[in-house]
Write a protein that binds this DNA or RNA. Structure first.
Length: 537
RNA sequence: GGGGGUGUAGCUCAGUGGUAGAGCAUCUGCCUUUUAAGCAGGUGGCCGAUGGUUCGAUCCCAUCCACCCUCACCA
């Protein structure tokens, strides 16, 4: 005997009369025939669904909403006078209890346990949660019955004195309460929280409601930003804003997002870095500037890359990369002390000590340290051979700069767990860095590594306009050879530099990665509220 | 782009080539200090989509979609 569903599936275009039982008709009617939908398109968006299409769960809530309105209760009132937050009460409980203070709290109901003539619920507010106890004979039987129309997820305000329950939980004995907003969807289960990563990213608000540690991660993110601003502002840095829409993109190697300005009828790029604009400000006479910025790079995504991400870029006139190094190690240590009250942080299995000074290794030294080979001053052929011995692609078609970079990434970078500055990179890898004052073929550039990933990139900024022009021209060659990420020549920027730029040190710090480090997160998606996702089908 | 994994009730997850399972949530009933409340009884599923194999597919196969992991690419 086939089931009705299967018969339906088999004969959906010609249904034998004998199968048109009431239940079956109802099923068909609800699911498809009503809307004359083809197969596979029975999912109307929820908003366009008439009431009878809603699942039973959602229907119940709408009925309750209707019932509330019929009782002349506004399910969406305008305000609530709160006197205390959950945290206030938990912190000052003893005093409040002995003085018999009446408190008003508000928040979202996240659990509800009813026992006939009394009930308990937990209220989640911005700072935590607090339990409320409601007794029929205290609030009145009619008022008490309103709870039949309330659900987990609703916002509610409650007023009463604090007390401790038998099991010792600090609670509020409600004298009165008020619905503040009716929720029409059930919340995720309270015990396991919301686990489905896709739902957590797409509906981050649910993630924040059901997973408190996620909420905390983002609070830390904000506090990290505050600490950065405090640190830099106290040192006389000026926070500035520069264009996100740029006619020429530059300052880093990456493919850009392209957009179009209608009135000017011109294509614009979303910035891949702020560098060139901040340098214009240094040229303009500001001596210490920084920007906390969103940059956009049209490239692959993985747990370390989101197409839009946050950077801190700062520039200081009359400073070189040594000064910037000191500034950076102090900054990270300061942040750690501010938000974690310690210079030591736990990241995965590692304990990382951020106290300055950090280890400093020159680029070639680091390669020697971890491969045993001193390649500085070696010729290109020898380096390619060495790379190939390590199993790294190093044919003639691969630029030597990339080969060297690969050796570093493969053999050195994973070992840089404790904070380390790698300095003095080969010139070809660094078109915005000044040539090294002593070492031939190298630049005054450093990158900061922690826990095996790159956190910052800094230079004694190139301020020789003729040298800068040559570097741009070299990049143009790479571009011709097919390097899509090579730099575009920026005539306007060169002109600015020709007016004269003071000696300057600058750095870019990846903020998302920094937040990952401080919050022990392994994916960038866990530190960005709304990470980029594919469109839902 | 390659490889691997996942997709089943609102949520968290089992499971099977032959009528679809649990816990929580929800609904009904009982219960005035519970706390992952309990007890009893219900409701709720095109088993991600499309096609194939089969008497019969949620399960096997193919393709597609989304997500996760990994490699490659990528400052």
């Amino acid at each position: 005997m086939l089931t009705l569903k299967r018969i339906y599936r088999k004969h959906h275009n010609s249904i034998p009369l004998k199968f048109l039982t009431p239940k079956f008709l109802c099923f068909i009617f609800r699911k498809r025939l009503l809307y004359n939908l083809p197969r596979g398109e029975n999912k109307l968006s929820e908003q366009s669904k008439p009431e009878q299409e809603l699942s039973e769960l959602l229907l119940h809530r709408r009925e309750k909403l209707k019932a509330l309105k019929e009782k002349n209760i506004n399910p969406y009132p305008y305000l609530f006078k709160r006197t205390h937050t959950s945290k206030n009460i938990l912190d000052d409980f003893e005093k409040m209890e002995s003085e018999g203070i009446v408190v008003s709290v508000c928040g979202r109901i996240i659990s509800l346990r009813s026992h006939g003539k009394s009930l308990f619920f937990h209220l989640l507010d911005g700072e935590g949660k607090i339990q409320v106890y409601v007794k029929s004979d205290v609030v009145g039987e009619d008022r008490y019955k309103l709870f039949e129309l309330f659900d987990i997820g609703d916002f509610i305000g409650a007023k009463g004195k604090v007390f401790k329950t038998k099991t010792g939980e600090k609670s509020i004995r409600a004298e009165d309460f008020e619905l503040l907003s009716k929720s029409l969807h059930p919340l995720p289960e309270k015990w396991h929280g919301l686990q489905d990563k896709e739902l957590r990213y797409r509906q981050r608000y649910l993630d924040l409601i059901s997973n408190p540690e996620v909420k905390n991660t983002f609070i830390l993110r904000t506090r990290i930003l505050s600490a950065i601003r405090k640190f830099l502002d106290d040192r006389g840095f000026l926070e500035v804003e520069t264009p996100i829409l740029q006619p020429i993109y530059g300052g880093a190697f990456a493919r850009p997002f392209i957009t179009h300005h209608n009135a000017l009828d011109m294509d614009l790029y979303l910035r891949i870095a702020d560098e060139l604009y901040l340098k214009r400000l240094i040229i303009g006479g500001y001596e210490k500037v920084y920007e906390v910025c969103k940059d956009f790079r049209n490239e692959g995504m993985d747990k370390n890359h989101n197409p839009e991400f946050s950077m801190l870029e700062l520039y200081q006139a009359y400073a070189d990369y040594n000064d910037i190094m000191e500034l950076c190690e102090k900054l990270l240590n300061f942040i750690s002390l501010e938000i974690l009250k310690s210079s030591k942080i736990k990241f995965q299995e590692e304990e990382i000590d951020l106290s300055p000074p950090w280890r400093r290794l020159s680029f070639w030294e680091s390669i020697e340290k971890f491969t045993g080979a001193d390649l500085y001053k070696e010729d290109e052929k020898k380096i390619r051979e060495f790379a190939q011995d390590l199993g790294i692609k190093a044919e003639a078609s691969v630029r030597i700069g990339k080969v060297i970079e690969s050796i570093f990434e493969e053999k050195v970078q994973p070992n840089l767990i404790q904070p380390t500055f790698i300095l003095d990179y080969p010139e070809e890898m660094s078109p915005f860095a000044k040539k090294h004052r002593d070492k031939e073929g190298l630049t005054e550039r450093f990158e900061g590594f922690i826990a095996g990933f790159e956190l910052m990139n800094a230079f004694s900024e190139l301020n020789d306009p003729l040298d800068q022009r040559e570097r741009f021209e070299q990049q143009a060659k790479f571009k011709k050879m097919g390097d899509e990420e090579a730099l575009e020549l920026d005539e306007d920027f060169l002109k600015a530099m020709e007016y004269g730029m003071p000696p300057t040190g600058g750095v870019g710090i990846g903020l998302d990665r920094m937040v990952m480090l401080f919050t022990n997160s392994t994916s960038i998606r866990d530190v960005i509220f709304f990470p980029q996702m594919k469109k839902e089908v």
